[in-house]
Design a binder for these strands. Structure first.
Lengths: 202, 202
DNA sequence: TGGAATTTATAACGAACGATATAGATATAT
DNA sequence: ATATATCTATATCGTTCGTTATAAATTCCA
């Protein structure tokens, strides 16, 4: 927005990098579990710098949520939209959900929204609206993919795109949750063929 | 176990009542959100009494989880098992899930396990095993209800009871989650007919 | 009635939390 | 060069947290 050189000492850190680092901490430890010490260390900045740049802890948390929505970091949805064959796309979505929910990477499991932010809904002010909007957005994206197949004639005209999109979202929520509780990827995979047929059933 | 009068000053509170009161606090505020002050006030006892009777905060939390499993306080599952007609039973399960997830009662929404304990999985030591066992148990109860219908001949012999039980569980998880994020009961009800057919589809 | 045992209430503990006051460092503008 | 503005680092603030000494109160046993 404003690229002109500003007066005063310049930032010693990249705001975006710091935000992503903070997100990973929240992701791995949860909102309450992530202390300011954890955050400042991971972000590579000191307390006062954090407060000056992002406000307080809660504001930082909300900013990581907005950032996540922007960068579109949710692998399963991306996989779903990229695969042209709809059945493979649905299977790919579920497979991606399961693998990300059971293969921890840096302590971060599943989707940031599904496995971290969702646990602070109703607890941290400002999260509910963002979560509701995120769910709405995801539901819509999933439904639009089905609508596309209806236009192509692959899916029948009366296919309930919106309902099946919501169903996929709820399935993700369930898989992520089971993954956190200790379920193995293999045991979760037992369900996917039945669920693929289910999602696409007329 | 031991009803003989014990020496010393007797308890001034009922252990079971105190445990249920503690559960309601955790249910409404979450594990981290519930302070010892909240707990002692709701339980009607003082700090030292709490520690003497239940151990520390975490031990108290785990005991409320065990207690919940014992009293079988999950309304949707009870509704599911009580209704003889299987289609009505499935519909009743989902309806019960939705109403309990969107009609807050004393700040407690949904199922204690689904809406509170599930958010502390991976965060509080001892919760994971209990949650995994609880999910297993619920999956099994749901599946057994379907098996019963297979014996009666209402459902075909190749009906995948276990998979559909899991599916119902994941749907509950999704509904409870959406309810916490602000979804209304009416909007959630839009899905149920599609889902009832889905759960019972061969 | 006097001790032993147990629960109670008051008060306060150390630790960790989130958040800041202060001062020093580094840039631009005049 | 001086002034001004912005960022950084150290150190510390006041709370709140979960937890626990301490001592009074209440019961049973001898």
């Amino acid at each position: 927005m404003n690229d002109t050189k500003r007066i005063g000492r310049p930032r010693g850190f990249d705001e975006n990098d710091a935000l992503m680092a903070a997100m990973n901490v929240f992701w791995a430890k949860g909102y309450d579990g992530a202390s300011m010490k954890d955050l400042t260390r991971a972000m590579g900045i000191s307390g006062p710098s954090l407060y000056a740049a992002f406000g307080d802890k809660r504001a930082l948390y909300l900013k990581t949520i907005d950032r996540y929505a922007d960068v579109d970091a949710c692998a399963p949805i991306v996989a779903f939209e990229a695969e042209p064959d709809i059945e493979k796309a649905v299977r790919g979505f579920l497979t991606s959900v399961i693998s990300s929910a059971t293969d921890p990477e840096d302590g971060t499991r599943g989707c940031f929204l599904a496995s971290c932010v969702s646990t602070s809904v109703g607890q941290v002010e400002g999260v509910d609206e963002r979560m509701e909007k995120a769910i709405d957005g995801t539901d819509l994206r999933l439904a639009q993919r089905f609508d596309l197949e209806k236009q192509r004639g692959v899916l029948p005209a009366d296919f309930p795109s919106r309902l099946r999109g919501r169903l996929m979202y709820d399935m993700r929520q369930g898989f992520v949750f089971r993954g956190r509780a200790g379920w193995s990827g293999e045991s979760l995979m037992e369900d996917i063929e039945d669920r693929v047929q289910m999602i696409l059933a007329i």
